[in-house]
Each structure stands twice: as structure tokens, then as C-alpha cells.
Design a protein around this nucleic acid. Structure first.
Lengths: 167, 167
DNA sequence: CCGATTCCGTTTGGTAGCAAACGAAAACCG
DNA sequence: CGGTTTTCGTTTGCTACCAAACGGAATCGG
């Protein structure tokens, strides 16, 4: 209950209650959700300033490279879904990755509306050197958690994801 | 163990291992970190498409309004820190909020480099109507979790935040 | 005092992110 | 076939986000 012990947060809670008047406040949910967001921001910033910047990659760029590495050449639409990005955003990310020489676009002969994206040799080399370091960095981010706690965390988050994604 | 049970993920794990060869993979950490990010994205998107869009606010805009509501008029630098944004980003967010009529800037008389930001009447009215709904939405996002699990989740994330933010 | 330094918010230039509109290509169907 | 509809990826227009550079204002040191 480290959060509850913080005078900073107790103060905030008191202020919020004052603003809310009689209306009830679901403090546990508020804390859970806001911590999800803060953790994600912190972890992303850390990754981008640390490992990723050395390779000239953003979080989204890394994700895209990683997906292509694991799954191989893919159509734009599938790649976007796998990266959890809109088609429009993926177009931009791929454009940047192309500029950096990490990926290449290929027109599909049988259907000229379609385009596939694949790693270049440089992209392959980069992700193969980068991923082990990224995975090590991930380990550092959760180093205060036991193996069980990591699994517990992943599972709790999975339930939130399922709820949030469902329409 | 929901994640491990998914054939989709097992397949991915196998592929990653194949790419990695003999090098070891810290799968628990990978899953924990990637789920943090996916959960944050899902929760944010859901909030922006649901509650927030009705009020013409982004996640960052809402956060800013909320901080100003709880803490009152603030200097730009403090507001940026409290919102966990860079000064530059906050300038933009405040500009948007000003355009929408939610906040106003005030030059500080005693030190003309400084600027404070405060809620307008419209901003106050908005956040007072919005926050209860946002808090209800937060509850929905974690409705699959017991109170203990919410606290557990918040605590596990707090440890990650502390690790990631420390330099 | 006054020159150098520090402090503060904004601007600049870049990437990332989305929805909606678009244009070309394929598929559908009468 | 040929017109309509659907399916693609991209473009457009917007907000958000950051680091670094900037420029005005305050402060510090002699």
C-alpha cells in the first residue's frame, strides 16, 4: 500500500473529496488506471531515451521492426493491426523506417492496391542486435518484481486490456 | 496464466526463440512490460472515444484540467511537472484548452517571466461534470478486478514507475 | 551598478498518433 | 461485359509529444 502511505497522495485525495462534495469517489480504480498510464509513459520514455535512441528508433518504430522480425513480410493492414496502430499512423511510421533504411515497401503484383513491408538487411541486423538489449531493459524495468509478481501483473493487465478493447 | 494459454502467444514465443537462437529470452518481463503499454493505450483510447470526446478533451487536456481543479491556479512549470509533461508540450495543451475556453493564462506581476494557468468558470463547470463520469469509467476499466486486485495492480505498477523514473 | 549567468515560457523542427476523405484497383452482380 | 460497391493504402488536417534553441527577465558577483 505504498501509494496510500504517501502524504502527497493523501493530500490529493482529500482535495478531490473536497471538490466532489458528497459524490462518492472510487479511489482504488482511479489509482489503478492512473498508474497504468504513468507506468507506460515512464517505461516508454526510458526505453526511447536509453536503448532505442542509439538505434534511431521510436517505440512505435521498434514495435514495427519487431513484428516484422517475428512474423516476416506482411501486408500493411495486418502489420498495422499487429502493431496496434491505425493504418494512417503505420503509413507514417513505415515512411520513417524506410528513410532510415530499416524496411522496404513492395507492390503486390497480383493485387496492385496492396503493399507489403519487409525488413531490409540493415533492419534485420539492427533488430537482431537490438532485441536482446531491449529485452534486458524490460527486465530492468520490472526488476523489483518477483517472477510470480511479473506474471500476476501481466495477468491483471490482460483483464484490463480485454475490458477496454471490447466494445 | 491467461496469456500463456493463448496459442497465438505461444506461437509468437516460439518464433522469437527461433530468431534468438541460443540467446535467452526473459519472457515474463517482456509480457509484463508489453501489457503495461497495451493496457495504457487501450484505456486511453477508450476514454478519448467515450467520455472525453463529448467534452472536446484529449487525455492530456483532461489531466491538465483535473490538476488545476485539485490544486488550483499554478505556474506553468509546476503544472507541467504535475501533469507529467514537458514544458513545451504543456504550452501546446494549454493553448488548446485556452482556445476551448477552459483555462486562462495570467502574467505574474512580480516576475514577468512567469505565467500562471487557472480554470475559467466554463472549465470549472466542465471538470465538475466530467470527473464523476471519468471516475465511473475508470471503475468500468477495472471491473474484472476485486478491490484487493486493484490495489495489488496499483502497487506493482508503482514499483515499476519508481524503477523507470529513477535515473 | 553592470556584465555574466541563470531562470522561465515559448518557438522550432521533428516524430507519432487519429479520423475522415480520397483515389485507384478489385470484386461483385445484373 | 459494365456499372456499382467494396477494399486497399495514402493523404489531409488536426492534436500531442519531445529536445533543443531562443529571447526576455531576474539574479548574481564583482
Amino acid at each position: 500500500m505504498g501509494d496510500r502511505a504517501s502524504p502527497r497522495l493523501l493530500d490529493a485525495e482529500r482535495r478531490i473529496q473536497a471538490r466532489l462534495g458528497d459524490r462518492q469517489l472510487d479511489f482504488e480504480s482511479m489509482l489503478a488506471v492512473s498508474n497504468i498510464y504513468r507506468a507506460a509513459t515512464a517505461v516508454r520514455r526510458r526505453a526511447e531515451k536509453g536503448v532505442l535512441s542509439e538505434f534511431g528508433l521510436s517505440w512505435g518504430g521498434f514495435t514495427t521492426l519487431w513484428v516484422l522480425w517475428v512474423w516476416g513480410e506482411m501486408r500493411t493492414a495486418d502489420l498495422a493491426e499487429e502493431c496496434d496502430l491505425s493504418k494512417a499512423t503505420l503509413t507514417g511510421v513505415v515512411k520513417t523506417l524506410e528513410k532510415r533504411g530499416f524496411v522496404e515497401r513492395k507492390q503486390v503484383e497480383s493485387d496492385r492496391r496492396r503493399v507489403t513491408v519487409a525488413l531490409t538487411d540493415a533492419g534485420l541486423d539492427t533488430i537482431e542486435r537490438l532485441f536482446p538489449r531491449f529485452n534486458r531493459y524490460e527486465g530492468e524495468m520490472v526488476r523489483e518484481l518477483s517472477t510470480n509478481q511479473k506474471q500476476e501483473l501481466a495477468e491483471l493487465l490482460r483483464r484490463v486490456i480485454v475490458t477496454a478493447v471490447a466494445e
